[in-house]
Design a protein around this nucleic acid. Sequence first.
DNA 1: GTCTACTTGCAAATGATTTGCAATAAGGGG
DNA 2: CCCCTTATTGCAAATCATTTGCAAGTAGAC
Lengths: 146, 146
Amino acid sequence: MAAHTHPRQNLTELTARLRQHAQRITGPRQLILEVLRREEHPLTARQIHEQLDCDLATVYRSLRLLEEMAMVKRFDFGDGTARFELLGQNDDGHHHHLVCRECSTVVEIGECFSGNLEQRIANQHGFASVSHRLEFFGLCPDCQAA
Amino acid sequence: MAAHTHPRQNLTELTARLRQHAQRITGPRQLILEVLRREEHPLTARQIHEQLDCDLATVYRSLRLLEEMAMVKRFDFGDGTARFELLGQNDDGHHHHLVCRECSTVVEIGECFSGNLEQRIANQHGFASVSHRLEFFGLCPDCQAA
DNA sequence: GTCTACTTGCAAATGATTTGCAATAAGGGG
DNA sequence: CCCCTTATTGCAAATCATTTGCAAGTAGAC
Ligand SMILES: [Mn+2]
Ligand SMILES: [Mn+2]
Ligand SMILES: [Zn+2]
Ligand SMILES: [Zn+2]
């Protein structure tokens, strides 16, 4: 399956990755990875913190580190709060979401528009290493009823 | 031309729109519209404020009002700061940007992927009134050289 | 010109995220 | 297993964008 599948890696594998980057395997870091490993949708730092027993600042610092190590990916739903998802071993994690404007339900979206468009835009303006950020918003089935 | 064209409306026209919404034509509101009218790229509340002589809070309040009146559109480049563009009379302002990751240069992009994809995603998950937010990021010609 | 509701300025409050710093713990070497 | 150096943590304070309470000011109707 695609990007929105649970990275089925175990903690051992994850700590191995941490070690590779010459980082220390600390309690908070392992716990954060465990929490993320169980979720299928991106979590906010606060949501992660609620399931843990360490300082919020530590959660933020760890997430930033894990992001730099490409072990987690940051998403932005435009509500001023970052969300994070665990990345698989050799996964760049590029994918999108469909978010309910009413209840914030999240649906993982693997599809994307043809890379053609992005390439054309890059060429057209002489930009290099172009990437994009795309999220969909709408009303989920439940919220349409209400 | 497309969405990224200057709304060539004059202030009279703009104040007329304000009046339609039973809002008062105040100094700050006119000034904000004047500032936005001269720009071709989205501006932050702070940037607008720098060109004015009223309180920053007033700028935020006015922008929110103008947004609700569909006279300005809010954009999010993922840097935690909202940006605003003036909207043309009957323009929903839907368009995208290509932003340099290095110097923040902005290029207006009128193109978009086929509405087909959006429709398919909506149907597939039973969502209604689906819209999307899409921005491109890359290295502009200048920043590639350096 | 008067009157009233809508607006503004100013200061304080918010909320997410970051940072300084002293206390603490991880992992290599002995 | 102990020690030592250095990375990491907890806590509190600082940032930053944006919002909000409130008293003073003003646009627009009469
Ligand atoms: Mn996802
Ligand atoms: Mn634009
Ligand atoms: Zn919903
Ligand atoms: Zn650039």
